[in-house]
């Protein structure tokens, strides 16, 4: 084989694959679905993998959106838990609250903190329905790859 041929082939391959790679990352990148399939909550006590679809699908547990995304009840776009329950460290009101309320209409201290809100929601429902994990380590997992 001509010694220059492998090099030319390699240059050609590098350029073509670079183009395909850049195009895939830009034009054909994966779009996040409108409704999440699963969610990974990052917690200090270990990550929690929450199967959103199994909880909401009719073939799963069929839980209504408003059972968890309870406020405001008639909103078309479901606000995430953290948009209200994740209170900024400086003690100011979360931006999502101020979309509808004035800052003086409510006390920031009365907002249930994110961890408590999710714990109440998950554990409360699991206890009420008598199914699903209730122990800490059955949701929170610590592992490295």
């Amino acid at each position: 084989m001509n010694p220059k041929k492998p090099l030319q082939l390699a240059y050609g391959m590098a350029v073509v694959l670079l183009l395909v790679g850049v195009l895939s990352y830009t034009a054909f990148s994966a779009k996040a679905p409108d409704e999440p399939v699963r969610l990974m909550f990052q917690c200090s006590t270990g990550k929690v993998l929450f199967d959103h679809k199994t909880h909401t699908a009719e073939s799963g547990y069929g839980i209504a959106c408003t059972d968890c995304h309870h406020h405001p009840e008639n909103a078309e776009d479901r606000t995430s838990c953290r948009s209200c329950h994740d209170v900024p460290k400086d003690g100011s009101a979360p931006a999502a609250c101020l979309n509808c309320h004035d800052a003086g209409d409510f006390e920031v201290e009365s907002i249930v903190k994110k961890t408590d809100a999710i714990h109440q929601q998950c554990i409360g429902c699991h206890k009420e329905k008598g199914s699903g994990p209730e122990e800490c380590k059955l949701c929170h997992v610590n592992y490295n790859f």
Partner: peptide
């Protein structure tokens, strides 16, 4: 396809 192409390149 994007990850593989970009990585080889």
């Amino acid at each position: 396809v994007g990850v593989i192409s970009l990585s080889v390149s």
